[in-house]
Design a protein around this nucleic acid. Structure first.
Length: 546
RNA sequence: GCGCUCGUAGCUCAGCGGAUAGAGCAACAGACUUCUAAUCUGUCGGUCGCAGGUUCAAAUCCUGCCGGGCGCACCA
């Protein structure tokens, strides 16, 4: 019996009690079943009686009594205790709990997938680094977390488009071009320009492609430098993300909005919505209508469109492309942008509460890391991966919630011990693979399955951890918190290592192979599957040996 | 000044209103002739920043304060 099935059983008992007139209460939408922290509190516990006490007009323990009497009659349930203020502590028959193992093995890679978000379509934007320089540690956090979130959402039935918005228009790009050209010509880097060593590298590549750039008129040369530099840098960033295992479905260029006239059209469309006004020669969007601190300029007095106008056009594009909802993942340094963003959405006639979610992430620091000289004393994604390995970087960034400020220790991330959780989890997977090989060599096969034999305390714990996996994935998707998957894998790995220490799959020496060993091999395979499926959701490899 | 965000063990951090607040590391003490010791077992360690409020129940929700980070352009 899985937690889900137990939850359904409790519901059925509740409905039966209501039908019999024992209780007068409406059955809640969700009946949560939890694994208690204390072993004495049973295999699973629910606080439903506490929740229903007030609406039912009965003391919590009386409600608990009613439910317990019905529950304990069900097959698979060994005992039901009422504890504390009215918790129901439920113990399952070992056989009933272990039946899950077969379910997992049969589901294989699909175990953990769920329908929590079936029918939802999402546009998930993350990283979206400007193409004016290399990707750094902040982008790395979003790449790891964003991709993991996308995978978790998809596993929960959502239709997800991973999108990267390329800010390739505007003054920033001109400064970028100017900086490259300055490197080529050996002149002063313009004010507000880019100083990192990588600009010199870009300059060298540009010159290699177009040796004639020195002879062009200044303005023409700067445009050429900008365009070639842009192409080179964007390609490099794409490659870096690709090597990191993060692929985007859509690379959306801001320029295309300007070139296609979408920005002009957006201004017109917003004007129709009644939130645009002309003032001081400029065109303004009255974002203060929707809680922004001040109105924002769409078209400057000199006739040029602002980036803000492009953002508005971008939003309309997202809607036009059929996305009812967009999730933005932004660094804490961009949080000032959120109000404006929501105001755009509201001005466009959409409800920000329904169509926009913004996940704000705190910044990351890495102790002991070599700062990148080429990027101007920032830590580059590429260097991090080269230094620590893709799995360690992805895992250690994906195991923390986005809003927790994070200080990673480079020394620790290199260690192959317990304080580096990625190895802890991967080692469990490798150990399981090795165990299965050993078992096969000794003639243990996954033929007989006798769930009642899986009754060791470590087996109870391990099975319970496996049982929670689908709910954890669903919860991670619903809350947009992929780190929950990583944390749970650590629980599973821990439960496995303890089981491994206590229960043998391969008989010792010349001892005969028994159904106990065969059944444990099922449990081993189920554990391996959960670890492999979970690591896949995080974009981390599940090695067969280490 | 206004706004957002964070504050949990010596360190790094978990903890969708529930039972005695957890994990890893660090410190100390143990377990490999037996399926991978990158593991396991035990001990030590707390005013959940502070103060109020909401309730059967608050680290969790609300308010105020203190402290850290970040943001407040006709720049992108």
């Amino acid at each position: 019996m899985t937690p889900d099935e137990l939850s359904a059983a409790i519901r059925a008992c509740l409905e039966a009690a209501v039908a019999a007139g024992d209780l007068t209460v409406s059955v809640p939408a969700e009946i949560r079943v939890e694994r208690p922290k204390q072993r004495e509190h049973g295999d699973w516990a629910t606080n439903i009686a506490l929740q229903l006490a007030k609406p039912a007009g009965k003391p919590p323990r009386a409600v608990a009594e009613l439910l317990a009497a019905r529950l304990v009659e069900l097959p698979g349930i060994k005992s039901v205790d009422i504890a504390g203020p009215g918790f129901l502590n439920i113990v399952l028959d070992a056989a009933s709990a272990a039946e899950l193992v077969r379910t997992i093995v049969e589901a294989g890679p699909a175990f953990g997938r769920n329908q929590q978000l079936a029918g939802t379509t999402l546009n998930l934007e993350f990283v979206s680094a400007n193409p004016t320089g290399p990707l750094h540690i902040g982008h790395t956090r979003w790449a790891a977390l964003g991709d993991a979130l996308a995978r978790v959402l998809i596993a929960s039935g959502a239709q997800v488009t991973r999108e990267f918005y390329v800010n390739d228009a505007g003054a920033q790009m001109d400064r970028f071009g100017g900086s490259i050209l300055a490197r080529i010509k050996g002149t002063e880097i313009p004010e507000g320009g880019y100083h990192g060593e990588y600009v010199a590298e870009l300059a060298a590549k540009v010159r290699e492609q177009r040796p004639d750039i020195d002879d062009l008129p200044l303005e023409e040369a700067q445009i050429l430098a900008r365009e070639l530099g842009y192409a080179i840098q964007l390609a490099e960033n794409r490659q870096t993300l690709d090597d990191f295992g993060v692929e985007f479905d859509v690379w959306f260029s801001e320029r295309t909005l300007h070139e296609s006239g979408s920005v002009d059209a957006a201004v017109d469309r917003l004007r129709e919505q009644g939130h645009v006004e002309d003032r001081d020669g400029a065109v303004w969007l009255r974002t203060t209508d929707f809680g922004d601190d001040k109105d924002r300029v769409l078209v400057k007095a000199d006739g040029e469109k602002t980036y803000f106008a492009a953002d508005a056009a971008y939003w309309l594009s997202v809607r036009d492309r059929g996305f009812p909802k967009k999730i933005y993942m932004l660094g804490a340094d961009h949080h000032g942008y959120v109000q404006r963003l929501k105001a755009i959405v509201a001005c466009a006639g959409d409800d920000p509460a329904e169509s926009v979610e913004v996940l704000i992430g705190q910044l990351v620091s890495v102790g002991g890391a070599r700062l990148s000289k080429r990027a101007g004393n920032i830590i580059e994604l590429k260097d991090l991966v080269e230094w620590l390995g893709r799995d360690a970087v992805r895992y250690s960034l994906a195991r923390y919630p986005a809003d927790s400020p994070l200080a990673l220790d480079g020394e620790v991330l290199q260690k192959k011990t317990n304080d580096n959780p990625v190895f802890y989890v991967q080692y469990a997977h490798a150990r399981l693979c090795s165990l299965a090989n050993q078992a096969r060599e000794h003639g243990v096969e996954r033929t007989a399955f006798e769930p009642a034999l899986l009754d060791h305390v470590t087996e109870n714990e391990l099975i319970a951890a496996l049982a929670q996996f689908p709910a954890i994935v669903a919860q991670a998707a619903e809350l947009r918190e992929p780190h929950r998957v990583a944390r749970h894998l650590e629980v599973v790995a821990g439960a496995f290592h303890k089981w491994y220490d206590n229960c043998r799959v391969t008989p010792r020496g010349e001892d005969p192979v028994e159904d106990l060993h065969r059944t444990r091999l099922w449990l081993a395979e189920a554990s391996r599957l959960v670890l492999a499926n979970g690591l896949e959701l995080l974009g981390v490899s599940a090695p067969e040996r280490m």
